[in-house]
Design a protein around this nucleic acid. Structure first.
Lengths: 222, 222
DNA sequence: GATATTATTTAGGTAAACCTAAATAATATG
DNA sequence: CATATTATTTAGGTTTACCTAAATAATATC
């Protein structure tokens, strides 16, 4: 099956929106893909004809098994590439998303396999997102937003949104990389900044940035 | 300047044909690009409008300075990628062309620079083709075809055509890699095979394959 | 030098993926 | 519940890069 880059991007976006918002509607798809809603309607009808999505006008879109398979393959390419570019080639973590966005459509299955092998079959990318397996399994550790944590709670950084380069530079300078453990020592009111303690070092992070960071809580009995 | 993949491919093909045949005509361009001659006419007119080529109907096409610059940038991407894929990632030399063909349009200038740096600013790709410098200089060592050599002559393998995977597997099995020195010990008549001696080991190579191999003669007084 | 052949161009058409503007459906508000 | 607002779709248009078929130009052959 030969699918255009556009189609792959649509399927990827539908997968992501489903994960983030639950329901996938025309306007949001259009916004994320930076096209007009009318264009989304047209493409979504086409995807439905191809049995890659199910679509009821005014009701929303959902991936079929076949559509999800394609989406996960593209996401696997993307995240393997991000990790390779960062870890092996030394590109900064705030640059790899943009680069992978183009390369994900260009690499062959053989190159994908080789990258996977060179990286030792990794399971997460540099931003903490899970890398789908070749068979299409994804480790979706149900994590919560850092911005919703309360004072005194402890957690580990799980995942940072990878689309925004500026966010990543900011978060990276603070040392908030996936895997880092911390405690919330203060939460300023009026959507103010949060103060975290990482190994006795205090850092301050804005609430907006904190919304873009997912964490895994460390239970009290650990 | 944002140029489509098609445009980049046309410019690359025009550059290559000019090098190989001297004159670039519609039919040959069409053949190489696997499109119809009528399509070439249309695109070439467009390229002329963009000042990337000069074009006189029925007379042929030639790259302008601007067009050559683009062509060399794409070729630089291609050859750096081939070398990276082969040398660093361990892909066989008969697979890298196909992969680079897609990736050359997808990598950023920053990634190009990083690859160049990781490879130590190389000057030839795995098939012996020169890698244009960032400034657009190419080392075109004027070499001749192996198929045209006579018995007793000595030379070094300079370059093997990279488009044909089967040819590369064949030539690779014979050990005829760029840089290898040899002597022609026999040339069978009627376009028959040639017998070469590499370090006292005799190998036999068909005349058709020999046409695809460029060599640098080693002068007698060396 | 007329005619056949080959090369090239012109004219008109298609598919993909977008667009804008207008129409319609769904939802919210007084 | 009538009306305003927002979401979505429909209709028709654009651009890119192809295509086929027909016309024309260049070249080769008798």
């Amino acid at each position: 099956m030969i699918l255009s880059e556009s189609i792959e991007d649509y399927l990827k976006a539908i997968y992501a929106l489903k994960k983030e918002v639950g329901k996938v509607v025309t306007t949001q798809l259009a916004e994320r893909l930076e096209v007009k809603p009318a264009s989304v309607t047209g493409m979504v009808r086409k995807l439905a004809d191809m049995k890659l999505v199910t679509y009821k006008p005014y009701q929303g879109v959902a991936l079929t098994k076949a559509g999800q398979k394609v989406a996960l393959e593209v996401i696997r390419h993307h995240r393997l590439l991000e990790l390779y570019l960062n870890e092996i080639m030394g590109l900064p973590w705030d640059k790899v998303h943009q680069e992978a966005e183009k390369l994900e459509h260009a690499i062959s299955e053989e190159l994908e396999d080789r990258i996977d092998q060179l990286l030792g079959h990794p399971t997460t990318d540099p931003h903490g997102s899970p890398i789908p397996s070749k068979a299409g399994k994804v480790n979706n550790s149900s994590s919560k937003k850092l911005s919703e944590m309360k004072r005194g709670e402890k957690a580990k950084i799980a995942e940072v949104r990878d689309e925004d380069s500026e966010l990543l530079r900011y978060v990276g300078e603070l040392g908030l990389f996936p895997g880092k453990s911390f405690e919330v020592v203060n939460v300023a009111p009026y959507k103010g900044p949060m103060t975290l303690k990482i190994k006795s070092k205090k850092i301050i992070v804005g609430r907006e940035a904190a919304k873009q960071i997912l964490v895994n809580k460390i239970s009290a009995w650990n």
